[in-house]
């Protein structure tokens, strides 16, 4: 089965639509959204509505820290994120907030675990930034493959039988075999706010039959998404960073 996995949409309608269309074109049979549907971007109401629609059609949807902040005020975020969270809370209706509040922190399916951040303690929203973080996540769970987001930079970590870790920067559009029985942790790039220097929206396809993961990048209308952020009165830096992909 081909599973499209999207993470960190951040209320970026243009990027979200582009990724969904690309996933459809590439024959995705199932959809998983790893959280942070809202926050930073100017289309939170639409993004939640579209996500609800996808969830009703069978998609797995998880909660991210920005989804949590859109429901109730919480600390620990930088000033831009805090400002965006306050704006997002005003922009969402009670139904949308109820949907976000009810999302699970993680989901398990066959040999895979989906989670927004560090699987060791998902509610604390730790980043998986290096091999040691990846090891902590993998040690904490049983699943052979862990898929997470939150960092906005794609990365892949593999654990050997001798408990050594391989870390790897995935190459776009190249299928990487997640060899059995090794265990793997994949950090997905962001749909709505990439931070690896490539402004194109990122998503991943997992082919469970061949156990291959492919990172795809999709160009989208960055100018419109950025203009909407400016028009909404959100911090300028949130608009400017979309074009830089940083």
């Amino acid at each position: 089965m081909k599973i499209a996995i999207l993470s960190d949409i951040h209320a970026n309608r243009e990027a979200f639509e582009a990724c969904l269309a690309d996933a459809d074109r590439r024959g995705a049979q199932r959809l998983v959204i790893l959280g942070d549907v809202v926050g930073y971007g100017a289309d939170p109401a639409w993004a939640v509505w579209r996500t609800m629609e996808l969830a009703n059609a069978g998609a797995i949807v998880l909660r991210g820290n920005h989804d949590e902040a859109a429901v109730a005020e919480r600390g620990g975020m930088n000033p831009d994120a805090t400002a965006a969270a306050a704006w997002t809370r005003d922009a969402l209706d009670p139904e949308a907030k109820a949907f976000l509040a009810a999302l699970p922190l993680e989901a398990e399916e066959e040999d895979r675990l989906y989670v927004h951040a560090d699987a060791h303690d998902p509610a604390r929203w730790h980043y998986v930034r290096d091999a040691e973080d990846a090891r902590r996540s993998l040690d904490a769970v049983q699943a052979r493959i862990v898929l997470c987001g939150h960092v906005h930079v794609p990365a892949l970590y593999g654990l050997t039988a001798a408990a050594k870790l391989v870390s790897f920067k995935p190459v776009t559009d190249v299928a990487i075999p997640l060899m059995r029985p090794r265990r793997w942790l994949a950090v997905l790039g962001a749909v709505g706010q990439p931070r690896d220097g490539d402004p194109a929206a990122a998503w991943a396809m997992l082919d469970t039959a061949s156990s291959e993961l492919t990172i795809h990048r999709v160009p989208y209308d960055v100018a419109t998404a950025a203009e909407k952020i400016r028009h909404a009165g959100l911090p300028e830096s949130l608009a400017a960073r979309l074009a830089r992909g940083r």
Partner: peptide, 10 residues
């Protein structure tokens, strides 16, 4: 060059 190098890590 486009796949993880399992040899180097091991």
């Amino acid at each position: 060059a486009q796949l993880p190098d399992l040899m180097e890590e091991e």
